[in-house]
Simulated scan of single mutants.
Amino acid sequence: MPKIDATPFTGPFPPASPPAGMGVFQLPTGSYLTRAALAFRGGRWTDQRDFASTAVLVRHPGGDVLIDAGFGANAAQHIRTLPAFRRSPHQLGATARQQLDDAGYDHRRLLGAVLTHSHWDHVSGLDSLDVPVWLAPGERPYAEGAKDDRVFSLVTRRHTIREYAFDGPAHLGFRSSHDVHGDGSVVIVPAAGHTPGSVVVFVTLPSAQRFAFIGDLTWQLDGITRRVDRPLLLRALADSDSSAVREDLSRVIALADRVHLVPAHDARAYQGIPRLTAETPAAT
Rank of each mutant, 00 (worst) to 15 (best):
A37P: 04
V151L: 06
H260Y: 00
E279I: 11
V133I: 05
S198C: 02
K147L: 03
R258L: 02
V180P: 09
A113K: 05
A267N: 01
I253W: 07
R275A: 01
L261W: 05
F152Q: 00
A244R: 02
V151G: 03
V133M: 00
W120Q: 07
S242I: 11
R59C: 08
D167N: 14
W120D: 05
R140P: 04
H90V: 01
P137N: 13
S124C: 12
D121G: 13
D222P: 07
G168C: 15
I161V: 15
G63Q: 05
S153K: 07
L135E: 00
A37T: 06
E139F: 03
T54K: 12
A170F: 02
A6T: 07
D248R: 02
L126G: 04
A76E: 09
A39V: 15
S250E: 02
D266C: 08
L111S: 00
H159K: 10
G112I: 04
I273G: 00
A52W: 15
T280G: 01
D179V: 13
T46N: 15
H122V: 07
A212E: 14
G197M: 11
L249N: 11
F166V: 09
V199G: 05
A75H: 14
D248Y: 03
A113L: 04
V58L: 07
V187K: 10
S124I: 12
S128K: 11
A20H: 08
I67E: 08
